Simulated scan of single mutants.
Amino acid sequence: MTVVVFGIDALDPEITERESHPHLTLSDSKKIETIVSSTGAPSTHELWPTIFTGLRPPEHGLVLDDGVAWESRALQVGSELSNYLLPESIQTKLGAWLLDKTSEDAFRVPATYYQKNRISTVFDGIEAAVIGVPNYVIDPESEDREHQLRRQMGELFKRDPEGGGRHTSENAEEFYEQCIEMVMIRTARVRRAVRSRQSELVFGYTSGLDLIGHVSHNRPELQRRAYEETDQFVSELLSDITKDDVLVLISDHGLQDGLHTDEAMIASTDPELITGVSDVTDVREAIETELTDGDHSAGSRWNTQETTEMDGQVAEQLEDLGYM
């Protein structure tokens, strides 16, 4: 009835193991190729638009070397001056860092960007619930708890100037709890959208696992723990998936030793869905094929009263946690 896609930033195929993480590997999983940005590493800013459009970054236009990297509010005042003071190559790398690594209000390209530029997406022409997906912002004035936590990191997430792109935290345990809260709230929002049975496609995203990975190069136990907890969150999401639904987990890249790796991952409850997916540009087609071939119209065979009661339970949990 519903295709559910949960984007887990930096879910690494080399770390995810079937025995240890049965819910992250689902019925079948595999590594897929990703795309390296102008900075020499895969970029969240570029890759999620690739995943939901099927286009490479130069084709969808959201690339790190075209000035988009300087759209952070923190740089708007000084960007004109920087054009005179900094070489273009340094501007690109610094802008990329701000987009990919800090608590600035990044990844906020509005959904209207694609309409204005006549770029089709997997969300077009269907009932879709889009939850926190980078660079597809339906309401730029709204934000949820993950957005708030990301902007409030401060000293908890700092770039290590001598770490080759790695990060440090003044309180790794506190930082870990914030990031796991991100994963929890986004999982809960996806679960609620699934339970409502109002959408053909539910597409959610969380960056918590990625952020934890960036500070785990000297605390590997934090990354291991994060995978275990994320596996448990996905197990709870699976409790809402019926035999007629399909769940897909997708990442934009991996992350080891504090740095992005050049391999992404896909997993699904339907092994056939991922058969033809070899890289991130193939994901959209696989989702659309499932939407076309399966019966994923909005509405449900579920009993309306049962669905309403289950949806209310999730809402109550969010309210108890202070998120609603």
Rank of each mutant, 00 (worst) to 15 (best):
G40A: 09
H45W: 08
E59R: 15
H45L: 06
P49N: 05
H45A: 13
S37F: 04
T34L: 03
E46T: 10
T39C: 08
S37M: 07
S38P: 00
F52W: 08
V36L: 01
T39Y: 04
W48T: 06
V36Q: 12
L47Q: 08
I35K: 03
L55Q: 14
I51K: 12
E59C: 11
P58C: 05
E33L: 06
T53N: 14
I35S: 08
D28V: 04
I51Q: 13
V36N: 10
S37N: 11
V36H: 10
E33H: 14
E33A: 15
V63D: 13
T44N: 14
R56E: 11
S43E: 09
S38W: 00
S37L: 06
W48N: 07
S37E: 05
P58V: 06
G61N: 13
F52Y: 15
R56K: 14
P58F: 07
G54E: 07
P57Y: 10
E46N: 15
I32S: 05
V63H: 12
L62P: 13
E46F: 04
G54L: 00
E33C: 01
E33V: 00
K30W: 07
G54K: 14
I32P: 07
P42R: 03
S43I: 00
G61F: 07
T34E: 02
E59V: 14
E59P: 11
V63L: 02
F52E: 06
S37V: 01
T53Y: 06
P58E: 11
R56V: 00
P49V: 00
P42V: 01
G61P: 15
I35W: 04
S29H: 15
T39R: 12
E33W: 02
I35P: 09
V63E: 15
P49I: 00
D28I: 00
S37W: 03
S38L: 00
L47H: 11
S38R: 13
P57G: 11
S37P: 12
E33D: 15
